[in-house]
Design a protein around this nucleic acid. Sequence first.
DNA 1: GACTATTTGTACGTATGTATC
DNA 2: GGATACATACGTACAAATAGT
Lengths: 262, 262
Amino acid sequence: MAEPKYRQIAASLRERIVSGALAEGERLPTEPQLQDMFGVSRNTVRDATALLVNEGLVESVPGRSGGMIVRKRVTLTFHAHRVEMPGPTAETDAWRSEVEHQGYEASQDFQLTIEVLAADLAERLHVEPESAAVLRRCVRYVNDEPSSVQFTFYPMDLATEVRELLSPTDIPQGTTRLLASLGYVQTGYYDEYVSRMPTPEEATLLRTPPGTPVLLHIRTGYTKDRPVRVSINVFAGDRNRIVSTHGDPRVIAKFRPEEAAG
Amino acid sequence: MAEPKYRQIAASLRERIVSGALAEGERLPTEPQLQDMFGVSRNTVRDATALLVNEGLVESVPGRSGGMIVRKRVTLTFHAHRVEMPGPTAETDAWRSEVEHQGYEASQDFQLTIEVLAADLAERLHVEPESAAVLRRCVRYVNDEPSSVQFTFYPMDLATEVRELLSPTDIPQGTTRLLASLGYVQTGYYDEYVSRMPTPEEATLLRTPPGTPVLLHIRTGYTKDRPVRVSINVFAGDRNRIVSTHGDPRVIAKFRPEEAAG
DNA sequence: GACTATTTGTACGTATGTATC
DNA sequence: GGATACATACGTACAAATAGT
């Protein structure tokens, strides 16, 4: 057999989806219908649809008027450059204003804990592995749907200098600005971008359907003297993209005017 | 049933993997062994391992000494900031020197075609949809394994001005530098980062196992007068990360010395 | 090269459970 | 409750890939 039946069936359905013959939100034929159409058993049909689910193309909904549904995606744009580097462009609550500027409703859950640092995080912060750190965690919702989670780690010795970091509520002015006002001016940062499948915890938290990867943005911030924090943003890959601009701001404003606003 | 059997089995195996009890490259118990261990049918065992495969945790190898193997990942770092913005830091072949600096062997396949622009690309380039464009495509191999693909689109009218863009071979000095020497100096760019599951074509080209997402880096480059190109980098998510630094170079050099070199 | 043993892959059948309308 | 859809779980059989004899 050149190509297994279930792959042929998946290819046939995939073609109808990407070509637009099956639009977003539309239902695929039901399993019994697909059995008849392709002359195979139900299990073989399910092997085919499982492939599409894991590609993130369709989502299954049980029940009378359920079925395999072509997934739609509303993409929120997250501007990596707008949040940092103190100055006139830094905003009170950068993420919230981003979301609202794009016409959505923003909310977040904040939580503070003290954690033992994993080796890779300790390395980024230039502290001993197993050191303690303050973790400020923020689950972010767009239109009441979880969209991303941010984990920001501060070395413990910094938190003892800047006691506000231990405040168990969101800091309205932003921690970057707070630290700057106390002499910890961020003069540079190191950004990493990674894509992988979510852990089960992340999938539950972000309510990602099977076949949805996460996009990680890991930012290490430095003053002129030391690393001051590591921030890990975990984005549901089907609902977010990250944008960053470089070079002459007038040029960007000319060709991406929507970026200059907000 | 609170939690389905196949999910319980997957959770049990997952725990042994993430805890390190099952190290990278090691084999999971075989299907018959798992049937005995958990007292379930082979199909149920396969449902469990399929979950792990789609999470990118394990990979299946058929055959006598095959099995389900815990995946290992060698991560190549791609520096987004080192490639662009003409100046003393721009290198002859930025990607190649990156890879070799990290101790791997680099090679690439180059191909030039003329394409009709899709709507989203035409928008980025500020040209009419369905316009023609030059596509310079580069498949990049690390240690002879495909690692990423780069698609760079130049508007057709620019290619008629800069005929070298139509050369069907790699331009050693780099197209950014070539364009700059002809007066098309890149003064800014717009970066987008996206994570999604690969299309079957991408999965074949990059030889990604099931459960591996791709990481997309889309860069639109501008002179002071116009967009001059869109470059789409498709990275196999299990083998690549993208890094970008901002702010005072001395600070970065102090805390990430490995970034200053190479 | 032929053969065998082991392991995963494909494909079928059946039965029952759960969610939704 | 009844109808319809997907989800779970069992069983069976044979195919394909791989390593060793």
